[in-house]
Amino acid sequence: MSRGAVPHYSAGFSLIEALVALVVLSIGLLGVAAMELKSLQGAHMAYQRSIATLAAQDAQERLWAQMALDDACPTWGRDSTTSSLANDTDWKQEWAKYLPGFADDSVDELDNCEFTITISWKETRFSGEGDDPEFTYHIRLPQE
């Protein structure tokens, strides 16, 4: 071998090797994009669940306020002849702004000042992910 000659085995990458590396890189980038999409979906669902929790807490606080006004166990959805701080129509209209397809039958009164608050909505952003979400909260207000 002469002094200035380069050995044949270190001539560099071939075109095929470069294309294979490009395909592997492309597949990796597609995986990263799919993970980003799933994380955005998860963030949106977490946002909606947070809104549902706030709606249930708001219903509970309205029932507490009604109990303080009436000095008795409240009834959800009173008519206009009695105090109507726990008016379910106002509550539903307020939270329907944030949750699409907000349920119409959300608060059920049980015995002994117990209530079941069911928050359900339509999942419109990611169709095909399963059933529409529904959260159920049970609360009991203290009695004397």
Results as ranks from 00 to 15, higher is better:
Leu54Glu: 12
Leu63Gln: 03
Tyr137His: 10
Phe126Thr: 07
Arg49His: 13
Gln60Val: 04
Gly12Ile: 06
Gly28Ser: 08
Ile117His: 00
Met35Trp: 05
Thr82Leu: 13
Leu63Asp: 01
Asn87Ala: 11
Ser14Thr: 15
Asn112Ser: 14
Pro142Lys: 04
Cys73Thr: 02
Gly4Ile: 08
Leu69His: 01
Leu19Ser: 07
Met35Arg: 09
Trp121Gly: 02
Trp91Thr: 07
Gly101Ala: 07
Asp90Thr: 12
Ser39Thr: 15
Thr124Tyr: 08
Pro133Asp: 10
Leu15Arg: 11
Trp121Asn: 00
Asp58Ile: 01
Arg125Tyr: 09
Ile119Leu: 05
His8Pro: 10
Ala21Met: 08
Asp71Val: 10
Leu99Gln: 04
Leu141Ala: 00
Ala46Glu: 07
Gln57Ala: 11
Ser106Thr: 11
Ala46Val: 03
Asp108Met: 12
Arg140Pro: 04
Gln48His: 14
Arg78Phe: 03
Tyr47Thr: 12
Thr136Cys: 05
Gly77Cys: 07
Leu69Ile: 12
Gln143Cys: 05
Phe115Gly: 05
Ser39Pro: 00
Arg49Ser: 13
Ile117Gln: 02
Leu22Asn: 05
Thr118Arg: 07
Gln41Ser: 14
Leu63Asn: 00
Ser10Ile: 15
Ala56Arg: 02
Pro133Gly: 06
Ala34Tyr: 09
Glu123Thr: 03
Ile119Val: 15
Trp76Ile: 06
Phe13Leu: 14
Ala59Ser: 10
Asp108His: 05
Gly12Tyr: 06
Ala59Arg: 05
Thr75Cys: 02
Tyr98Glu: 02
Leu63Ile: 04
Arg62Met: 15
Val24Asp: 08
Gln66Tyr: 00
Pro142His: 06
Gly4His: 10
His138Glu: 14
Ala33Thr: 08
Phe102Glu: 00
Asp88Thr: 09
Leu37Ala: 15
Phe13Pro: 08
Ser84Thr: 10
Phe102Pro: 00
Glu109Ser: 15
Val107Lys: 00
Leu85Met: 07
Asp104His: 01
Glu129Asn: 12
Met35Ile: 11
Asp71Pro: 02
Asp105Thr: 13
Ser84Asn: 13
Ala72Tyr: 00
Gly77Tyr: 01
Val107Asn: 01
Thr53Lys: 12
Ala86Lys: 01
Asn87Lys: 01
Ser120Arg: 05
Gly128Ala: 09
Ala55Thr: 04
Tyr9Arg: 12
Gly77Ile: 01
Leu69Tyr: 02
Asp71Gly: 07
Phe115Ala: 06
Asp111Ile: 03
Gly12Asp: 07
Ser50Ile: 04
Val23His: 01
Leu22Cys: 08
Leu99Met: 08
Thr82Val: 13
Ala65Glu: 10
Trp64Val: 14
Leu19Tyr: 07
Leu37Pro: 00
Leu40Asp: 06
Glu114Ala: 14
Ala46Leu: 11
Val6His: 11
Gly4Phe: 08
Ala52Pro: 03
Asp79Thr: 10
Lys122Tyr: 07
Asp79Glu: 09
Leu37Val: 13
Cys113His: 02
Asp132Ala: 09
Ser120Met: 04
Lys122Ser: 14
Lys38Leu: 15
Met1Val: 10
Phe126Val: 10
Ile139Gly: 02
Gln93His: 11
Leu54Met: 12
Ala46Tyr: 09
